[in-house]
């Protein structure tokens, strides 16, 4: 009995936290999204979202998030798989995850240096005779840096899912006549679906609302909904419009989570 009561008390700080910093802000955002710049009630913010400008932004957000997620998956899955086969896998895993301990802004600035006109990559290209290239401020650099930043979140859950597979299942599959490729298709891949699903959500959802990288690395050439929210809150001070975009993004994320769960089933 006593521990049960204690359990209930222990939940209080968490409940306060959730109410103050999760539920209240969400309600505030929802409320704000119905106010115009003067503070009057309006539905215009949502109407504006259907204008070509915002539709394009929304399309861009989804497009880039999809590309980054797809690249992370295509690169991350084999990496996770090979990682689970190496001898010092925990060490390798830490090395893979280490960059995610570094502040996002620092990493982004580091790439400005690496990919800049005076940076080492360009110096190398010069040296081998290809000549300097404009590496920053384009789609490629944006996708490259975003993938670099988010890929650990794809590798980790997939790695865990592969590690969880009972090795005798692989033997059983081989024993029943399956080649390595068939074993992957019929046993390993289906049993790592949960990992892929987690990885997908951990990468897709944050990339959907990226903003800083879009400006620093893509030079505002890639304008996503994240950028739009930032601009509305900090530059145009149109909190209503910013909130409306945020609400739409939250709904979109919920749909994505629901859909991935359905598809992966």
């Amino acid at each position: 009995m006593k521990t049960k009561n204690f359990g209930r008390f222990a939940l209080i700080p968490y409940a306060i936290w959730i109410v103050l910093f999760v539920i209240a802000p969400l309600l505030l955002i929802a409320y704000n999204s119905f106010l115009d710049i003067e503070g009057n009630f309006t539905l215009l913010n949502y109407a504006k979202l259907f204008s070509p400008v915002y539709m394009k932004m929304m399309f861009n957000s989804f497009l880039y998030a999809s590309i980054v997620t797809a690249v992370s998956l295509l690169v991350g899955y084999p990496v996770a798989y090979l990682l689970s086969r190496t001898k010092h896998k925990r060490l390798w895993l830490v090395l893979m995850i280490l960059p995610s301990w570094i502040n996002l802004l620092l990493k982004t600035y580091a790439f400005l240096g690496i990919l800049g006109t005076e940076g080492p990559v360009n110096a190398f290209l010069e040296a081998i005779g290809i000549g300097g290239q404009q590496l920053l401020f384009n789609d490629f650099s944006f996708i490259f840096v975003s993938t670099y930043i988010f890929i650990p979140f794809m590798i980790l859950p997939i790695f865990n899912a592969i590690e969880k597979i009972n090795p005798s299942l692989i033997y059983a599959s081989r024993d029943l006549g399956a080649s390595n490729i068939t074993t992957f298709q019929r046993v390993i891949f289906p049993l790592t679906k949960d990992g892929i699903q987690s990885g997908f959500q951990l990468v897709f959802i944050p990339t959907l609302s990226l903003f800083m990288i879009t400006r620093l690395i893509a030079g505002n050439r890639v304008i996503t909904l994240g950028t739009a929210i930032e601009q509305h809150f900090l530059v145009t001070q149109d909190w209503g419009m910013g909130s409306a975009i945020a609400v739409v993004l939250i709904i979109a994320m919920a749909i994505v989570m629901y859909a991935t769960r359905k598809i992966m089933k």
Partner: peptide
């Protein structure tokens, strides 16, 4: 064909 100790049935 093998019958494994832990059966190794595909979950």
């Amino acid at each position: 064909n093998t019958v494994f100790q832990d059966y190794a049935l595909f979950p």
